[in-house]
């Protein structure tokens, strides 16, 4: 009685709606360009791996994936590392300006990337980080750090205060308590927060494209290269797209049990 009549049908239809465009992309990535342009086929009649082979052998292509993963990982590590103590502070203590600070963080999560594109370009050029993964990783902190603080604060608040107090009575120093007791207790929360940092850094394009030119170019920007004088290389574009979906699909699998709670920002 929790659910509504016809729920199986609704769910099935919605999942088909979600999967159909993705299927079409996968389908195209295994077709030759001749087949894509000349006929409308529901599955590849002459399946080929040529597009994938090209991406994995051409350095200008696969380096894009490495660059993207590089800044995503740096960003996730920085975000979680600085957000953990802050989340504890927001959850346990009241201090001067805490509410204003929290709101200020939140407002940065909501700020449009387009506003920051140009000033970031100037800033990171000025300090010599332009076209390195560090520039993109730091730029993505502007929305990922507040998000990580927000999610982790929800999870830390779920840990009873008595645990802190007992640990301090037992003679734990603060850093030792933090690493030995608190971090293992909210391990699932850290996983969820890391997942979200990974996700938002992975899907963002505007800043990543603005802050890189050659060396650290992300895969998303390299994909625009498939437009050439000879027309679009649809098969290659589709194959590159499919490969960008895979890392996301892998991480979802690991956090699938916490995903719903994470999307509610640890507040359910």
């Amino acid at each position: 009685m929790h659910s509504i009549p016809g729920r199986r049908l609704i769910m099935a239809l919605f999942l088909i709606f979600l999967l159909l465009p993705i299927y079409w992309l996968v389908n195209m990535s295994f077709k030759t360009n001749a087949e894509i342009v000349s006929t409308m086929t529901l599955w590849p009649h002459t399946p080929t791996l040529q597009h994938y082979r090209r991406i994995f052998t051409d350095e200008s292509w696969y380096s894009g994936y490495i660059n993207s993963l590089e800044y995503v990982v740096i960003n996730t590590v920085i975000s979680i590392a600085v957000a953990l103590p802050a989340a504890y502070a927001f959850s346990r203590y009241r201090f001067l300006g805490d509410k204003h600070l929290f709101f200020w963080l939140l407002s940065n999560r909501m700020a449009p990337a387009a506003v920051y594109a140009l000033p970031f370009f100037n800033l990171y050029s000025a300090i010599g980080l332009f076209d390195t993964p560090w520039a993109v990783a730091l730029a993505h902190c502007i929305f990922n750090v507040p998000l990580a603080v927000w999610i982790l604060e929800g999870f830390v608040s779920g840990v009873p205060r008595e645990i802190d107090e007992t640990a301090f009575l037992d003679g734990y120093s603060f850093p030792r308590f933090f690493i030995k007791i608190l971090v293992p207790l909210i391990a699932s929360g850290i996983g969820v927060a890391a997942f979200f940092c990974f996700m938002f850094s992975w899907v963002e394009l505007l800043l990543a494209r603005t802050l890189t030119s050659v060396q650290a170019k992300p895969i998303a920007a390299i994909m625009t290269r498939t437009v050439s004088a000879a027309g679009m290389d649809w098969g290659l574009l589709a194959a590159a797209g499919v490969l960008t979906i895979i890392p996301g699909a892998l991480v979802i699998w690991f956090v699938r049990n916490y995903i719903a709670r994470g999307f509610a920002l640890g507040r359910v």
Binding site: M11, L15, I22, L205, I219, A220, I252, R256
Partner: peptide
């Protein structure tokens, strides 16, 4: 269902456009 639901959220935005 959860994994399939979350799938579109993890696709880079320009790839969503491309799809």
């Amino acid at each position: 269902c959860l994994v399939i639901l979350a799938l579109p959220l993890l696709i880079p935005w320009n790839v969503v456009g491309t799809i």
